[in-house]
Amino acid sequence: MELTDADLIARVLVDDDQHAFGELVRRHQSSVRGVLRQLTRTDIALADDLAQETFLRAYKNIRSFRGEARFSTWLYRIAYNCFREDARKRKELVGVDEEQLQAEHDPQTIDPGLRHDLMHALNRLPLNERTAVVLCCQNGLSHDEAARVLDIPLGTVKTNVLRGREKLKRTLAAWGPN
């Protein structure tokens, strides 16, 4: 029988079992790296560095995980904090590069493949809306869980998801075949 996340966490806590932690990393690496790639606008190297930092912090602070949320939600929160700290270090202010991105992504040159279009449309959203859409619509977090990950009010998450969705739909409709 496959061990649950809770079983593996218990092994890490009780026995300091690094193999158990390795299994947790294997299970969650794809989703954490995926979210970070969206946040960093597909900068794969940076996203993977931040993902490594996320798991290292998770290991060092695993005693503070009280099981009130899903382990993945807790990881997303650490990942988002890592991303914000890194962005602060790089003096990238949240949301101010939107105009630059609008200029970079010319809809006329977008690949017609749906996935490609979606990812490009997603990357054009402001960070707060993109993060909310990635967490709630793509990774299945509830609005409540996303609010805890992002440490913002529930109403703000709902607004960001709503706005992000509408922008995505409008962008995709504009790019779609006539």
Binding site: S30, R37, L114, R115, L118, C137, G140
Partner: peptide, 9 residues
Amino acid sequence: QLREAALYI
């Protein structure tokens, strides 16, 4: 479509 677009890494 968003969920399907998120490939397993």
